[in-house]
């Protein structure tokens, strides 16, 4: 893959909190139309990496290049090309759903005809009847779907999502997966972190596993299988093997034995 057609190129990315290296020397590239799955145990550094991609945290080392612009030199251009869905999104309680979308659209200077597309996503997410109600009356899942709508509406070349499926009902989760595929089919690149190995297996063409801030492995599912030398295993077993938690199986077995 040449770095010219890469929508996102990350090189030697590192971030320290005090003496603790939360992310260390992470490098990868993503081309348009790709879905990149970012896996790892709790506290591995996924959210920290994503915050650096979204321009919220300043990396201590390394570069982030989005669509040919570096984050350090042209942060506004990079941010304008990136849609971002945080893991714990904040929404303004005293705005209606529609007003929130308006706000996001004006922040990204979205033209009116693109803003009109938000109606389609609201419709798909069953939020149309709620769009003129205050966000304070929304459930957790509805909030999640509203912020998804705002991100899809932006139609940015790169979409960065931190744990997209938390709190969604099965129907919405299915829908979000289909929308991710559709967006990727239209040439949008999607970077998502997830704990759901099933999602990663189904959606992502490239999977990276990060452990203790370092990339443990990176590649297609096939390549990961080869690395874990488990040719027929599913992603869960590969994940457990590569994150060094395979001995967990022993623990589980022991626990089961102890049950009366």
């Amino acid at each position: 893959m040449s770095s010219d057609d890469a929508i996102l190129a990350v090189n030697g990315l590192g971030k320290k909190f005090g003496d603790f290296a939360a992310v260390h020397d992470v490098s990868f590239t993503m081309r348009a139309g790709a879905i990149f799955g970012f896996l790892g145990p709790n506290g591995a550094g996924k959210t920290t990496t994503i915050k650096m991609l979204a321009g919220l945290l300043k990396p201590d080392s390394g570069t982030i290049t989005i669509g040919g612009h570096t984050m350090a030199a042209a942060p506004l251009t990079c941010k304008g090309m990136t849609g971002y869905i945080p893991d714990r999104p904040y929404l303004y309680d005293k705005l209606t759903g529609h007003e929130f979308l308006q706000f996001m659209a004006s922040l990204y200077e979205l033209p009116a005809e693109k803003f009109a597309r938000s109606q389609r996503f609201l419709e798909l997410f069953d939020l149309t009847p709620w769009q003129h109600h205050l966000v304070e009356s929304y459930s957790h899942g509805m909030r999640q779907k509203l912020i998804m709508t705002s991100a899809f509406m932006l139609d940015a070349p790169l979409l960065v999502v931190d744990e997209p499926m938390v709190g969604l009902d099965p129907k919405s989760a299915r829908l979000v997966k289909e929308l991710f595929k559709e967006q990727a089919g239209r040439g949008r690149a999607i970077f998502l972190s997830t704990h759901s190995l099933e999602i990663a297996e189904e959606l992502c063409d490239t999977i990276a596993i990060i452990v203790n801030g370092r990339l443990r492995c990176l590649g297609t599912l096939e390549e990961l299988r080869r690395q874990a030398s488990r040719s027929d295993s599913d992603l869960e077993e590969i994940f457990l093997e590569l994150t060094g938690t395979y001995e967990l199986q022993e623990v589980i077995r022991a626990l089961r034995r102890e049950e009366p």
Partner: peptide
């Protein structure tokens, strides 16, 4: 501010 996250992620000077 809790809205710092979405506002900072947007292209705002």
């Amino acid at each position: 501010s809790q809205d710092n996250e979405i506002v900072f992620a947007a292209p705002v000077a």
